[in-house]
């Protein structure tokens, strides 16, 4: 029997502007080398499910860090802090870039790191994943899980914190991108996913999109009515195959 173990803990990392932010970090116990993954939480916040995702990556041989993007709206329980962040209009894109960049630096600085770092995000974090993949050239792979708002059809969605439609950043996308989408989702809907794919093609970017019938938004979430086991199992296998190819150099 091969020994397996992991360490999962909260810690503080330097994010945007050198600010100290909370993060949840899970890694295999071993010498490595391990690729890194930054896990971007969904809009409800830095919750239990986000931590489960980090541990899932550790289980599969990745060092995974989930920054608390609402840290600056604390202290408090993650749900109270998320409510406060929401009332403040959410977090600024520039700040997210700085926080994810800080996490990528943290991952690469570990002695067991293999030097490659991917990013994955869910819901609003899917949009943020697409954005940081366009703005942080040091990332090696990105997985956008049903990120709404990449395509901005209503200009009222743009503001000082989120001033640029993420789709407009596509020419700067610096790493392979994978997208997972449910065909019953309304945000992003099928047309928006189509237009995102067209932009990626037009700019000659490396990407793969997987679209699932019978699934809507957030179909990985086992404690929600929208959970779709077949699609979720397949989706996770696609994630690990993608990261296996781009972060470890071996598929699977």
């Amino acid at each position: 029997m091969t020994y397996e173990g992991m360490l999962a803990e909260t810690l503080v990392v330097r994010g945007h502007g050198g600010d100290e932010i909370e993060a949840y970090y899970a890694r295999p116990l071993g010498a490595g080398p391990y690729p890194g993954v930054v896990v971007i939480h969904h809009m409800p916040g830095w919750d239990e499910w986000t931590r489960e995702v980090a541990r899932k990556f550790a289980q599969h041989g990745y060092a995974a860090i989930a920054p608390h993007l609402y840290s600056r709206s604390g202290p408090g329980s993650p749900d109270d802090v998320a409510a406060r962040a929401r009332a403040e209009g959410g977090v600024a894109d520039d700040q997210v870039v700085g926080d994810v960049g800080g996490c990528a630096r943290f991952l690469r600085a570990q002695p067991y790191a293999n030097g490659k770092v991917g990013v994955i995000g869910f819901c609003s974090g899917g949009r943020q994943t697409y954005m940081v993949a366009c703005r942080l050239p040091e990332l090696n792979a990105a997985v956008d899980c049903w990120g709404g708002g990449v395509i901005v059809d209503d200009p009222a969605q743009l503001n000082d914190k989120r001033p640029v439609p993420v789709i407009d950043l596509t020419p700067s996308l610096g790493c392979p991108l994978m997208g997972l989408f449910g065909n019953d989702d309304t945000n992003p809907n099928v047309d928006q996913v189509n237009r995102t794919e067209e932009a990626l093609k037009r700019h000659g970017k490396g990407y793969e999109f997987h679209r699932y019938d019978g699934a809507g938004h957030g179909f990985f979430a086992v404690d929600r009515a929208g959970y779709r086991p077949d699609q979720a199992v397949d989706g996770w296998s696609k994630v690990f195959a993608f990261y296996g190819k781009h972060l470890t150099g071996s598929a699977g």
Binding site: H42, M43, P44, G45, D47, P78, D79, A82, A83, R86, A87, C123, G216, H217, G218, D223, R224, A225, G226
Partner: peptide
């Protein structure tokens, strides 16, 4: 009271009507 229809933190629903009394 802040009122929004979005993903819940705790309720086992995809979307919920949420009220924060502050």
């Amino acid at each position: 009271a802040n009122v929004y229809y979005d993903h819940p933190y705790h309720a086992p629903l995809d979307h919920s009507l949420n009220i924060d009394f502050l």
